[in-house]
């Protein structure tokens, strides 16, 4: 397996936030992770990225243990809900940020940023400053800045949480295209059931600091603890209600 997480534990003030967390993820696959607020999703991502040290447990990447490595040595990019574009840099420099850290030559940086800007449909915006872009465009720049350095794993913490529904849909489809084009392995945290199903090759459900990864999407849909059935029933009942109202109107 490409990413292996074994028995991770983390306590904050004697409270178990993540407990005996284990899962595996294949290369170039996306694992969607659902769960209620405060169930430990963000702490789990931060432990995998190295931003938070686990109390115990191990993280393996492509067979190598990375548990004790610093975040800058893991090649895993953590993306927040906020785009966090650097306000003092142009869009070009924001996308090129990670490449400049790697001290790649300017010609190669220009070529790669231009190619990425085309993939993100941002080629006309490269000279602008972040405040001149819309929310969706900013989030695209944030994706480009992360993907351009070719990370081993992309860790996304509710990346579309602050976008309106239209922009969110466009971003979902863009992300799907990018994961295919750049062969990305990712963990995708979301609160949105539909988004989890759309984005993930596999789906995990986190509860009380523990993650359960389902073998198939059908297994996930059949599990009563996830609340998926309740949601499906809600929409079905709404559909039936709307249908009967329409029938009554026609009869009248």
């Amino acid at each position: 397996m490409f990413l292996e997480v074994n028995n991770l534990n983390k306590k904050f003030n004697k409270e178990h936030v993540v407990e005996a967390l284990s899962f595996e993820l294949e290369k170039q696959k996306t694992l969607s992770i659902l769960g209620k607020s405060g169930c430990g999703k963000t702490t789990m991502l931060k432990m995998i990225s190295g931003l938070v040290n686990p109390d115990s447990g191990n993280v393996f990447l492509d067979g190598n243990e990375v548990t004790l490595l610093k975040p800058e040595q893991r090649n895993m990019v953590y993306l927040y809900q906020e785009d966090l574009l650097f306000p003092h840099l142009t869009i070009f420099e924001n996308i090129a940020f990670g490449l400049r850290l790697k001290k790649i030559n300017s010609k190669a940086i220009k070529d790669q940023v231009d190619q990425m800007a085309h993939s993100l449909e941002l080629h006309n915006q490269l000279d602008k400053m972040p405040h001149q872009l819309s929310g969706g465009q900013r989030q695209r720049v944030s994706f480009g800045r992360a993907i351009i350095i070719n990370p081993s794993v992309l860790l996304l913490d509710e990346p579309f949480g602050s976008l309106d529904s239209g922009t969110r849909q466009r971003m979902q489809s863009l992300f799907k295209n990018l994961t295919r084009e750049y062969k990305i392995t990712s963990l995708f945290i979301t609160h949105d059931l539909k988004e989890a199903i759309l984005m993930g090759d596999k789906i995990g459900f986190m509860q009380n600091g523990n993650l359960h990864v389902y073998e198939s999407k059908q297994d996930f849909l059949n599990d009563p603890t996830t609340g998926v059935n309740q949601e499906i029933n809600f929409w079905k009942s709404l559909q039936i209600e709307a249908g009967s109202e329409l029938k009554n109107t026609i009869n009248e």
Binding site: K46, S49, G50, L51, K70, P71, E72, R74, N75, M76, V77, Y78, L79, Y80, E82, L84, F86, F97, G98, L101, K102, R145, A146, I149, L155
Partner: peptide
């Protein structure tokens, strides 16, 4: 968060 982001980007 900015600091964390720079770290995960390799800084």
């Amino acid at each position: 968060n900015y600091e964390n982001l720079v770290s995960t980007l390799g800084g």
